[in-house]
């Protein structure tokens, strides 16, 4: 799908932890229907960026805005209601809830709200959509790793977010699961969803992202299509070592 208007704006975003600057003056735009990758070596500030956008952390300075709403000083539940959903780097399933309830959890309090039968039906559709149709009755403790990831994705989609944040969603999958995962995200892209993808897996970035931001030591060092940034000498240098 053709990217539309700018939907999310990040401007001069900075986060300090004591003396350490985890994210330093970061700016980028995300357009509607676009899959934006955020990549970079370990410790470059990618996850901190996701946590700043989703409201889990509060920025030291700079701003994030979604369709004109300033998200900078907004608490996580309000961010979710305004239309940003996320998954977690280490998958987080609600262990005492059923598979269906886990997905419903995303539908009841999020951006577009549903309750009762409507929420159940909507969540069931989403479970089917991510490939869990036959696991609805399985206890969550019996889910495989990729199924847990799928369930978390269904939960994030259930609020019909404007922007979906995937924090290393593909990490930890084995090679055959990885292809399944990439296909799943690629189908989200085909549906025209707006996604910010923090990722290590290069294949995924090449095949999934419309554009990428590359971070190193908290700063943006490149931005462009995957092909452009991956041939950028600064990026190669950042990945091969900070010589």
């Amino acid at each position: 799908m053709i990217p539309g208007e700018t939907i999310l704006e990040v401007r001069g975003l900075t986060k300090r932890f004591g003396g350490l600057i985890a994210v330093n003056d970061l700016s980028f735009d995300v357009r509607e229907h676009e899959v934006m990758g955020v990549i970079g070596p370990n410790g470059s500030g990618k996850s901190t960026t996701i946590n700043l956008i989703s409201g889990a952390l509060r920025a030291t300075s700079g701003s994030v805005s979604l369709e004109g709403h300033d998200l900078t000083a907004v608490r996580p539940h309000e961010t979710a209601r305004l239309g940003i959903s996320r998954t977690f780097q280490l998958v987080r399933i609600l262990p005492a809830l059923s598979v269906l309830e886990n997905a419903v959890a995303g539908a009841v309090f999020g951006h577009k709200r549903r309750w009762g039968r409507k929420a159940d039906v909507f969540a069931t559709d989403l479970l089917e959509r991510v490939g869990l149709a036959d696991k609805v009755a399985v206890p969550v403790s019996a889910l495989t790793y990729i199924d847990q990831k799928r369930l978390e994705l269904a939960r994030a989609l259930a609020g019909e977010p404007e922007v979906l944040l995937l924090d290393e969603w593909l990490a930890g999958l084995n090679p055959s699961e990885l292809q399944v995962g990439i296909d799943l995200i690629s189908s989200l892209r085909a549906e025209g969803r707006t996604v910010i993808l923090v990722e290590h897996v290069m294949d995924a970035i090449r095949s999934l992202c419309d554009r990428c931001v590359v971070m190193n030591s908290g700063k943006k060092i490149a931005e462009g299509t995957p092909a452009e940034v991956l041939s950028d000498p600064h990026v190669i240098e950042a990945y091969l070592g900070d010589a």
Binding site: A56, R75, H77, R92, A96
Partner: peptide, 24 residues
């Protein structure tokens, strides 16, 4: 109620609860 459901979610994982839109 929704509030009861919200409570169960936050009892399981408060961070997830916040990020699905619950004012914990």
């Amino acid at each position: 109620s929704r509030m009861g459901f919200a409570l169960r979610i936050l009892g399981n994982d408060e961070e997830v609860a916040r990020h699905v839109g619950i004012d914990t």
